[in-house]
């Protein structure tokens, strides 16, 4: 008998308690807490193989999309300190640079999936190794949240590939703190990733 753990919210499926083998659960079984699909679950105590590819990185110039993200991040930083005017100005800059950043010519879902895979297989692992080595708690925190959110993005894309209408009869929410995407009729009481209360989860409406 084994235990299977949800990589998103940490929910534990204990075969002994449930009396049903994890493998015997239907394929469309989902995490009862956060809705993560069955295939994301991992058996307990499986060692993660970490890539050894550790090439040196040099700091490069930021592009417009990144400048925009830094500006919107600082806008939120100002908001937290109730610095309204500063926050508005940073938001204005964020929008300015977002419009300046060039939109891709064409994009396929496959390209998006391969970017996500690279994040999950290499970028997060490397970042985690360095952050642990340097004992940077803040960095480890953002890596943990981001990795979980990225896993959900991957699973949503693969569900979308199998069934283009999988979200047709339900709703889409995004956690305004960590970026977790929740698919379901009612939002969870707290975000399964960062544990912020539900009022920070916002619905993404479907256009006409």
């Amino acid at each position: 008998m084994k235990k299977y753990i949800c990589p998103i919210c940490g929910y534990v499926y204990d075969e002994t308690k449930e009396g049903v083998k994890f493998d015997d659960l239907p394929d469309d079984w989902k995490c009862p807490l956060c809705g993560a699909p069955k295939k994301l679950f991992k058996a307990e105590a499986i060692e993660v193989i970490v890539s050894e590819d550790m090439e040196e990185e040099t700091l490069r110039e930021m592009n417009y999309a990144e400048i925009s993200a830094l500006c919107s991040s600082l806008a939120r930083g100002c908001e937290k300190q109730y610095l309204e005017e500063e926050s508005k100005l940073f938001t204005k800059l964020a929008n300015y640079y977002k419009n300046k950043s060039k939109i891709k010519e064409s994009v396929s879902f496959e390209e998006l999936i391969s970017k996500i895979d690279k994040d999950l297989e290499i970028n997060y692992q490397q970042a985690r190794n360095i952050a642990s080595e340097k004992e940077d708690r803040g960095a480890l925190r953002v890596i943990t949240w981001g990795e979980k959110v990225t896993m959900i993005l991957k699973s949503l894309l693969s569900q979308y590939k199998d069934d283009k209408e999988f979200i047709k009869n339900t709703k889409v929410y995004v956690c305004d703190i960590c970026g977790f995407i929740y698919i379901g009729d009612e939002k969870p009481e707290i975000c399964p990733v960062c544990k912020v209360p539900s009022f920070k989860l916002f619905e993404i409406e479907r256009g006409a």
Partner: peptide
């Protein structure tokens, strides 16, 4: 439906970048 999902992805990725910058 595709637009709705894309919108959620735009938001999620922006939020992750912002959070990464903070750290």
């Amino acid at each position: 439906i595709e637009k709705q999902l894309a919108k959620a992805f735009i938001r999620a990725n922006r939020l992750m970048s912002e959070d990464l910058y903070r750290e």
